[in-house]
Every structure is written in structure tokens, then in C-alpha cells.
Computed example of a mutant assay.
Amino acid sequence: MGPSPGDLLTIDGRASVQFAGDRALTFRVVSVPDLPTYHGWIWLSGYVLDHRGLATAKREVYVQLAGLRPATAPEAPRAGRQSPPTRPYALPGDQGDRGTVGQGARVPARADAG
């Protein structure tokens, strides 16, 4: 039995010489097209995943069934290792006016405002 949609595979030189060495892929199967192939070979459609498990490219690959290996799921990001949420460009009172806005004081225009 071959791969099915949702499978996570390592595609390397065992599956096809074009994926040997540093050209190996972690691949999430989306579909298995019913296209004619040589005995023992298969077409797969899916996404190449990076080390975090994020899709980086959609691909169709032609590989040997015997060379396909299940891949381990990428490690989920841990709490505390995520980047902090971003802030809006400027908040009221956040332009060096030291609380004088709203008290009739004029705030100078920023050079990069436009």
C-alpha cells in the first residue's frame, strides 16, 4: 500500500537520486495522482515543509515507493520561544511628548511621518 493524503514523508536519495544529500525533503502528501508510471514508482502532490513544519513550496514529485520513509513530525514551537507581539507604529502619548498631548501643547511632526 502506498502513501495517502496527510502522510508526512522523508524523500531522499533512496526515493530518487534527485533528492540525494542536502536535497532531501520533508513532504506532506496532499494527493496521489492516478498517472501512469513505471512499476514501483509513483507521483505525489504535496508541500515541502521546513524544520518548523511550515509549508515552503507546493511540489509534484516522482519517486520510488520502496525508498519512501515516514518522517517525524517537526517539533511544535514552545511557549516562551515565540517572538513578542508587535505594537502599532505609535500609540497616543508615545511620541516623546511626555504626557503633554491634550493639555494644549503642540507635538512636533515626526520626520518620518507621511
Rank of each mutant, 00 (worst) to 15 (best):
1 M>G: 12
2 G>L: 09
3 P>Q: 11
4 S>A: 12
4 S>M: 02
5 P>A: 03
5 P>K: 03
7 D>R: 01
8 L>C: 08
8 L>S: 02
8 L>V: 10
8 L>A: 03
8 L>K: 00
8 L>Q: 01
8 L>D: 00
10 T>H: 09
10 T>D: 11
15 A>C: 08
16 S>C: 05
16 S>D: 15
16 S>P: 00
16 S>G: 15
19 F>V: 02
19 F>K: 06
21 G>P: 01
25 L>Q: 02
26 T>P: 01
27 F>N: 00
27 F>S: 00
27 F>A: 00
28 R>T: 05
28 R>C: 07
29 V>L: 04
29 V>M: 06
30 V>T: 13
30 V>Q: 14
31 S>W: 03
32 V>Y: 03
32 V>K: 03
33 P>Q: 06
35 L>I: 14
36 P>K: 11
38 Y>P: 08
39 H>G: 08
40 G>R: 12
40 G>A: 12
41 W>A: 05
41 W>R: 02
42 I>T: 14
42 I>E: 06
45 S>K: 11
46 G>D: 02
48 V>W: 04
49 L>P: 00
52 R>H: 12
52 R>T: 13
53 G>I: 02
54 L>M: 10
55 A>C: 07
56 T>K: 14
57 A>R: 15
57 A>S: 15
57 A>H: 13
57 A>P: 07
58 K>C: 03
58 K>G: 08
59 R>S: 08
60 E>R: 14
61 V>I: 13
61 V>M: 02
61 V>D: 01
62 Y>D: 01
62 Y>E: 03
63 V>H: 00
64 Q>M: 09
66 A>F: 04
68 L>W: 00
69 R>K: 14
70 P>T: 10
70 P>S: 09
71 A>M: 06
71 A>L: 05
73 A>C: 04
74 P>S: 03
74 P>I: 04
75 E>D: 11
78 R>S: 11
78 R>F: 03
79 A>K: 10
79 A>G: 10
80 G>E: 03
80 G>C: 06
83 S>K: 14
85 P>C: 07
85 P>Y: 09
86 T>L: 12
87 R>F: 12
88 P>Q: 15
88 P>E: 12
88 P>C: 07
90 A>C: 11
92 P>K: 04
92 P>A: 10
93 G>T: 11
97 D>S: 11
97 D>K: 04
98 R>F: 10
98 R>T: 06
98 R>I: 04
99 G>F: 08
101 V>R: 13
102 G>I: 07
102 G>W: 05
102 G>N: 06
103 Q>Y: 13
104 G>A: 06
105 A>F: 15
106 R>L: 13
107 V>F: 06
108 P>R: 14
108 P>N: 07
108 P>T: 08
108 P>C: 07
109 A>S: 10
110 R>T: 09
110 R>A: 15
111 A>E: 08
113 A>F: 09
